[in-house]
Design a binder for these strands. Structure first.
Lengths: 143, 143
DNA sequence: GTGCTACTTCAAGTCGACTTGAGGTCAAGA
DNA sequence: TCTTGACCTCAAGTCGACTTGAAGTAGCAC
């Protein structure tokens, strides 16, 4: 019993089967075969799905994720790109830290409106003068 | 000259005017008045826009952002919600750290395919057994 | 007063990431 | 054998966050 039925994968990974089919269509995962019409998956797909979920919550698009863990055309470029993505994450984490601090302060601050609080506005200014360039195109969404 | 024309705001904030109109329609920002048909903005809108951009890159939807900085109906609920959002951010940052480490390792690791590397798979497993529940619905899109 | 141009409204379009629906297939249990 | 139910394909729909396009308007320079 070394392969998993699509329903089993869906259950274990916590995603609907339709999403698995969609990911397969996009080339993010592959099924190891079929039993009749039914897709069968190698258990490794679960790790791959965890990775995809992680990338999604980190704000990467499916295409970006696909590129991050592509079948490795030229490893050098690949590695440079991965390092660059790691840097992107680092930057995003710094932004999140600012936002987290802003929210924590806002939650504790007695000012009637947060915008009237000097500390809050200072945090925002710090964020604004930081990198925070043009807002990210589309996003995703994530969702 | 204490008010800004929409074009000026767009230029300074680095977003198209159409986005400003859209944000206004959604109640995320307000114009302080009009000169003829043209919207005029109070300079404080720039901080608010920085905040919105920050929230977007942190993965919040416009509706969530609107709620975070609502006109303050009940401050208590509001503050509890802000604290909860801060916790969410904390969790997201932990996930990002895992992904960053995974990417850094993948960039340095000599294994032909990342999935064949035990360290990498270990990081993934850690991520998978962590919180990383069902993938976030819709997103977002943020991109 | 005539242009120019940057604005205005409103409806419709786009994009990513899925989901839903209609109609069909097939392996396994009663 | 028949039914059931979980799967299949393919097209179309949805949702958030905007963008684009058409048609109109008004402050400012001339």
């Amino acid at each position: 019993m070394t392969v998993l039925d699509i329903g089993e994968v869906a259950r274990r990974a916590g995603v609907p089967a339709s999403t698995l089919r969609y990911y397969e269509e996009k080339g993010l995962i592959t099924s190891s075969g079929r039993r009749g019409l039914r897709r069968q998956y190698d258990p490794g797909v679960l790790e791959r799905l965890a990775l995809i979920a992680l990338g999604r919550t980190a704000g990467f698009s499916l295409d970006e994720i696909a590129r991050m863990f592509a079948p490795d055309g030229r490893p050098d470029i690949d590695r440079r790109m991965l390092a660059a993505k790691a840097e992107e994450l680092e930057a995003r984490m710094r932004e999140l830290a600012v936002l987290r601090d802003s929210l924590r302060h806002a939650a504790a601050c007695p000012a009637p409106s947060h915008m009237e609080c000097a500390t809050f506005r200072g945090l925002l200014r710090a964020a604004a003068t930081g990198v925070v360039p043009a807002p990210p195109k589309r996003t995703p969404g994530p969702r």
